[in-house]
């Protein structure tokens, strides 16, 4: 934080800087807009570090990058309703957020040569979100099946988080409404 943090305190009037130093806000690291958007709109459920295991929420850390392995899975991430409908109107800003999620949080799971999302691409995809009635869970299962077969994704990518015991197919089907 140091350099940007100091610069940030430096532009405040002396009195205000004193007050900051005395509150819990002191020493708060400066974060990027993409990080801030991630925390505000995603991190509650997915975890500030990209994992909220053992909550029944897809773990992003070192896993979400596998979705960049093929076009369908890449599109799916943007078409998820909470991504497509995120209260971020500028699709460039949303692209920055999703590139942070995929490349920073996704870490080692990103395939070599994966290209970042572009604003126009995000604008096009978010206009076609997964709609009510779409079998979201079945769709995810099919896409992840492909990633496991063709992209070396681990078998537990079908589960919410690494190391989770596989759910029985029967349970999954009943939840998917299949």
């Amino acid at each position: 934080m140091n350099r940007s943090g100091v610069a940030w305190l430096g532009i405040l009037p002396a009195g205000a800087a004193m007050a900051v130093a005395m509150t819990a806000a002191a020493g708060t690291p400066r974060i990027t807009t993409a990080q801030s958007d991630y925390v505000e709109h995603c991190a509650g459920c997915h975890g500030i570090s990209g994992s909220s295991a053992p909550a029944p929420v897809p773990e992003l850390r070192d896993r979400v990058g596998y979705f960049m392995c093929n076009g369908e899975a890449r599109d799916y991430l943007i078409r998820l309703p909470n991504v497509a409908h995120a209260p971020i109107r500028d699709s460039g800003e949303l692209a920055d957020l999703m590139n942070f999620v995929v490349f920073s949080i996704g870490g080692k799971s990103v395939p070599d040569g994966a290209q970042p999302y572009q604003a126009e691409e995000v604008a096009r995809l978010r206009a076609e979100p997964l709609r009510p009635g779409a079998a979201l869970l079945a769709r995810r299962r099919q896409l992840v099946g492909d990633l496991i077969r063709t992209c070396d994704a681990p078998a537990d990518l079908q589960e919410f988080y690494a190391g989770q015991a596989p759910e029985s197919r029967e349970q999954q089907d009943s939840r998917a409404g299949a």
Binding site: T23, I48, A55
Partner: peptide, 22 residues
């Protein structure tokens, strides 16, 4: 501590800035 939460933004009156609060 729950591993999940929700995140709001509050303004600190000492510096007038908005902070992310889980």
């Amino acid at each position: 501590a729950s591993p999940t939460s929700w995140v709001g933004t509050c303004i600190n009156p000492d510096d007038g800035k908005a902070y992310l609060i889980a």
